Amino acid sequence: MRHRLKDGKSGRHRDPGTVGVHMDPTQAGSLVYEALSAIFTPALPEAHRIVPDGGQEVAARFFDVRRQRPLSEPVRLGEAVRAVVHGRPKDIQRIVPGIQAHFAVDDKGFRDLGHGEQDHELVIGPKRSTEKPQPGPE
């Protein structure tokens, strides 16, 4: 029989469906956090820490990615922001399409942390226009 710790889990073990996201505290980063909070349910009430590639602990916000809500308005992001996404590969595969629905996402690679978890480095930027240019007068 397995017993859970009364005081919670270690920094490496999260509930299934939970992904940590760290972004630098810029205006663009705040806008992406706000959009993520509207798309996914925040999983923990306060910021916790993750250790991205480089070994320094940073604050991260955690989201429950098992259910996704659509946004009713487009999110206008002025500049790209780097993000570290921390969690199980299956859960990271859930959050990336949710982000891509509203922003351009470039996955710069990942680091395997063991215990079935990874850190992915993402560059989240303004959504590229999908409209085709109208032909001009000739």
Rank of each mutant, 00 (worst) to 15 (best):
R2M: 10
R4H: 14
D7L: 08
G8T: 03
G8N: 03
K9C: 03
G11T: 08
H13G: 00
P16I: 01
G20I: 03
H22F: 05
H22N: 11
M23Y: 01
D24T: 07
T26W: 04
A28P: 06
A28G: 05
S30P: 01
V32P: 02
Y33D: 04
A35K: 01
S37I: 02
A38S: 14
F40G: 03
P42K: 12
P42Y: 08
A43T: 05
A47R: 12
R49G: 10
V51Q: 11
D53P: 12
E57P: 15
R61Y: 11
F63E: 04
F63W: 09
D64T: 03
V65S: 04
V65I: 07
V65K: 00
R67P: 00
R67G: 07
E73D: 13
P74I: 05
V75G: 05
R76S: 12
G78Q: 14
G78A: 14
E79M: 09
A83G: 04
V84G: 06
V84C: 10
V85R: 00
G87H: 05
D91R: 00
I92E: 03
R94V: 01
G98S: 09
Q100D: 10
A101E: 13
F103G: 07
F103C: 10
V105W: 02
D106Y: 05
D107P: 02
D107N: 15
D107A: 07
K108S: 09
K108F: 07
K108R: 15
G109L: 06
R111Y: 05
D112G: 01
D112Y: 11
L113W: 07
G114N: 06
G116V: 07
D119N: 15
E121G: 00
E121M: 11
I124M: 08
I124T: 04
I124P: 02
P126Q: 11
P133L: 11
P135F: 04
P137G: 01
E138T: 13
